[in-house]
Design a protein around this nucleic acid. Structure first.
Lengths: 173, 173
DNA sequence: GATGTCTATGTAAAAATTGATATATAGAAA
DNA sequence: TTTCTATATATCAATTTTTACATAGACATC
């Protein structure tokens, strides 16, 4: 079973969700398209880790709501006892910064400004999510609190860097 | 042409390198195996973006040293004028933290301790690289200076988070 | 009434990435 | 002498991921 499959089980650990919802929930941690998720959900069900019930909605299309089986919950538990693979990040911006000498300084500044904007949007989103969550439970889902804080740390540090870099470039050019 | 191909051109913008060296150089920005790199280098040469010369080494196996052509340098320049794709990060640790309720708290603490260690190693490496680089050029390769600083920012913030998270968990448990 | 968006599920094909196998030189260690 | 590691290049198979194709209900807008 691959990491994305375990990720789907992880998303289902708090509550049942449809494939569509799972796809959106897992994006911040392990980006994946629905074309990858639906087949994996079918396989997870074949293997007995999840089950589903059809939910009819009056205002929206019907959906399959997936939930963990006991076997699925056991699989999560044993997965947690194993070390995690190192994180993988691929960022085209890094590759462009590396060879910035080859291009127009204005282009590089625009790239950094776009990254600043990107980080600001993410920070707004996570701050809003963070406040929403503070009103709900706290001790029942410590993991989500930790991850929220981490996202804020991470995007803030990226934002700080991008703004510092812009200042450096403007100071020189 | 895909992002990794541009990344290889980017790595060649300062100096010529062998496929083996390119593979190591590009890891921090765009992880890739040699099995992916060698075919791309052959294609980049077919398309006229790079050329190579065979270098005989007395103490090591012969190598192909690749360098940018004018066309390759032009391609880099036009690539820099286009916006960068958003960064993609996949981290199994996030997925495990998310469902930490399902496992033994000791397991989660171990995962965080391993991440702390991972960040410390990276920080040591980048600090060493940073000092080495300060002695060489500064104004000739501003991109590398920016990227170095960013790596330090990024791993420091991840380290801070992981240590904070461990303190939280130990404080509660 | 047509058009677009969001919700919802699925498959097929293409591209990107990883893992395995293969070969070869040189040096160090056992 | 054998074994291991680092350097160096290359291909093939498997897996993962993305892109495109396909269908459909409910709602809003034009």
């Amino acid at each position: 079973m691959n990491t994305l499959s375990y990720g789907l089980l992880s998303m289902l650990s708090y509550a049942p969700f449809s494939g569509y919802d799972l796809m959106q929930k897992i994006q911040p941690f392990w980006p994946a398209k629905h074309s990858q998720i639906y087949p994996l959900l079918a396989q997870l069900e074949r293997d007995g880790y999840i089950q589903h019930e059809l939910v009819v909605q009056p205002d929206k299309p019907d959906k399959k709501v997936h939930s963990l089986t006991d076997l699925g919950r056991e699989a999560l538990s044993q997965w947690l006892s194993q070390p995690a693979c190192p994180p993988v990040t691929r960022d085209e911006l890094s590759l462009k910064i590396f060879c910035m000498n080859e291009g127009d300084p204005v282009d590089i500044q625009r790239l950094l400004e776009q990254r600043v904007e990107y980080c600001r949007e993410k920070l707004v989103w996570f701050h809003a999510k963070s406040e929403l969550f503070a009103h709900k439970r706290m001790d029942s889902s410590p993991g989500i609190v930790l991850l929220m804080r981490r996202a804020l740390f991470s995007f803030q540090s990226e934002l700080d860097w991008a703004e510092w870099a812009l200042k450096e470039l403007r100071g020189e050019g």
